[in-house]
Structure formats: structure tokens, C-alpha cells
Design a protein around this nucleic acid. Sequence first.
DNA 1: TATATATTGATAAAAAAATATCGATATAAA
DNA 2: TTTATATCGATATTTTTTTATCAATATATA
Lengths: 226, 226
Amino acid sequence: MVNRIEKTAKIPTIKRLPGYLHILRQLHQDGAVDISGAVIADMLKLDPVQVRKDLASTGVVGRPRIGFPIEQLITAIENFLGWNNEREAFLVGAGNLGAALMGYSGLGRAGVQIIAAFDNDLRKIGTTIHGKPILPIEKLSELARRMHVKIAILTLPEEEAQKSVDRMIRGGITAIWNFTPATLKVPEGVIVQNEDLSSGLAVLSRKLHVNKQKTETRQKRGTKNE
Amino acid sequence: MVNRIEKTAKIPTIKRLPGYLHILRQLHQDGAVDISGAVIADMLKLDPVQVRKDLASTGVVGRPRIGFPIEQLITAIENFLGWNNEREAFLVGAGNLGAALMGYSGLGRAGVQIIAAFDNDLRKIGTTIHGKPILPIEKLSELARRMHVKIAILTLPEEEAQKSVDRMIRGGITAIWNFTPATLKVPEGVIVQNEDLSSGLAVLSRKLHVNKQKTETRQKRGTKNE
DNA sequence: TATATATTGATAAAAAAATATCGATATAAA
DNA sequence: TTTATATCGATATTTTTTTATCAATATATA
């Protein structure tokens, strides 16, 4: 029997896969057929060995002097991530970020389709954003269950996060993409992926801050010695 | 002389700091004075040793049986990240995501203030979004230089990314928060922080996909054996 | 005052991730 | 046909990150 579940890749590898997929699709559109790991590494500023190892986890094998078959890689990565079959999702919290995600084409490319958004703002309910209807949050649990929706995207204020998570759980949601800073309490088996913009910002800030201090120190020293 | 630049923390630590800051501010508001690493770990579902090590990198020392002083921790983390002094930023690409970031309060908490957005859509230019003026992208480089803005947030379509990065560089921008999937070419010394929503989505998708396959395998086996 | 203990911080160990090395090989060039 | 070489994939090494252990200690309790 063939191993149906591919060798389990580690989180860092999984996180890099969309980057590979992205340029592979471009290369494919440009008519390229094969690509070497070294070229990919160069395009994405990664280590070539890392690229080869990452790609190996999709099961696709490359050929010496030729590289990897692009089409195969694309389908293998899509398959690996489950991005080649459609899944419906609810979005909870139709604020700024929620609206942005409703218009985010990357979701579609990942096979995720937002079919409705939920909010508690009466002015929003009944309207649509990017073609998605905004429904009252009280309906969340019932509709999730009735429509067999398993994915929820959480983009509301932190204070309301846990309450709406409880609704989701009652509705049978099994995966939550959490954009709030709240640490969600969910029963075992429910997948939570925290998406934290502020942590990326922290890295940027820290680098800037260190740079600045270095510059200032250098300047001060310079002045002192002159 | 006191060491002005704190012990350099590693990236994973830096990424966790905003999470600590967040709950520390809550605790402070609730009137708490000290907090033990174990309690923080519990709140954020982290390892207690990891929390202590992370906090140690801010330079704050805790007391046995008491824990860490909350106020000190808050200012130390803010200081460590440079979040306690204001910096002005430009946003480039006033689309969905751009608009969301203009309304994102987390930026303000990090001391970053978007003072203008740039776009090439004539219908947007001259208007404001969340109180920020939308200016023609041709002005980017000149204004950055004249206003000494050093930070740019990149939220436009990938095709236009590199071109506008070149404008930024000419304008003296030194830090770019990149929300596009493009691998940016910048001169040495310019900081680029890539913020990739699709990588988080990939992790969620993969977990869902694996779960599903497991369930299906189990069901098939169950049927076969009955 | 003496004792018990929650908690830190330092050091050590383990695990995970990134990077280096190198033989095997399929193709292109000689 | 033979040789040279770009590329892979396996294994080994190094580095980074996480997790475990434990002595030191400041406070609370007896």
C-alpha cells in the first residue's frame, strides 16, 4: 500500500511552501518545465539545501542536471496543503481587517471560500461586503451546523473573541484562524492558528531600534574622539 | 558605563514579546503589581522556563516568591522594542489591506503612526481613509525625503511592489513592512520584514488536511473490519 | 525566631532547524 | 563513445530553540 499521508513536514517547512508555490506558478505561466532547487533558493533568498529538503517533503523527486518538474511540484504542494479542494468558511467580525480578508484573493488560491460574515453591528447586518452577506452573530452557531462549515476566521475585538468562539464550537467549527490577541479556549481537537501582526511588527521595530542605537553610539563616539 | 543595548534577544523571543506586553497591560489595569512567570505561561499557553528566559532578555529581574514587577516589565519591553517613541510611516497601496492597516490600532501601540498613504488610483487620490490622506505615488520619494520618514508599509499588488520599493529607497526609507509575496531587492542596510498571511493559512490548512485524512482512514478501516 | 515554600535564574540536556559535505547520476559536451 | 558537470538526495555537522534540573533566596507561616 502506498503511504497516503505524506511524510509529516515541520512547521517551518509548511510555512515556506506557499512561497514556493507562488513562484512555481509564475514559472509555469512563463512556460518553464523544470527548475533547480538552487534557482528557487536564489529567487527566495533561501538556502539551496533547505529548498531541496522542503520540496522533498512533498514527495516529488528531482533529476540530476535537470531539477524538479514544475507542474508536479505545484500539484504536490497544493495536495500536501489541501489547497486543491474547496472548503467554505465563515468570517466573524466584519470590521476593517474582516473586510480586507473578504477581498483577499489568497484565500481563494488556498481553496477557502468565505460564504458569509457575522457581526453584531445592526448597521452592517443585511448588507454585503465584497459580495458576502453580513449576518447577525446570533445565527453563527446554527448556520455553521446546518451548512457544515468547519472553518472560521476571527477578526473581531478581543473582548468578544471568546464568546464567539464558544458559538463556533457549538456550531461544530473545527478550525479557527485567529487574528485577535486573545488566547482562545477551545476543546481538544479544534485547531487554532494565531495570526499575530504585532509580532512581525516587533521584529521590524527591534531591528530599527538596534540600528538606531548603534548609529547614535557611533556618532557619540565620533564626536568624543574628535 | 551601563550597557545601553540590551542583550540581543533571538527572533522567536522578540516575536513573543508583544504577547507578554499585551497581558501585562491588562494585568496592570486590573491593579496587579507583580506577576510570576508561571502565571504568564499559563495565560499564554507557553512554557514557564521560556517565559522567564524571554523576560530576562529585557533586563528586568524578578524576586523569588513574588515574581516580576509588572510596570517595570511593561516599560522594559516597550523600550526594548522601541515602542515608546513615536515614528512616522508611509503606507503604500491603499487597497483593502492598506485600509485595514490604516485603521489598525496596534500600530499606534507600537509607536508607529501612518501619516499618509500613496496610491496610483486617481479616484482615491485626494481622499482620506481613516483620516489619512491618499497621495499620488509619484510623490512618495520626494515626500519621504522631505519629511524624514523612514518606515514604509507595502500593501499593493505584487507587480508594482519592486517599482515602489525603488521609490522608497530613493526617498531614504530604511525599513519596509512587506505584505506582498514579492521578494524585494533592497540595498544593504535596509530592513525588510515580510508579513505573509498565506504561510499561517498553510499551517492551518495542513493541519485540517491531515486531520481529515486521518478521519477518513479510520472510517475506511472501521467499515472494512465490520 | 526558625522553617517551609514559591519563585527566580543559572546551567545542562534535548529537540528542532538550518547548513555543510559528498557520492551518485543523468544529461550535455567533447 | 567517453568525459565533464550540474544537480539531486542522503548523511553528518552545526546552530538555534526549547525544555529540564536544581541551587539560591526572599517572603510567609509556624
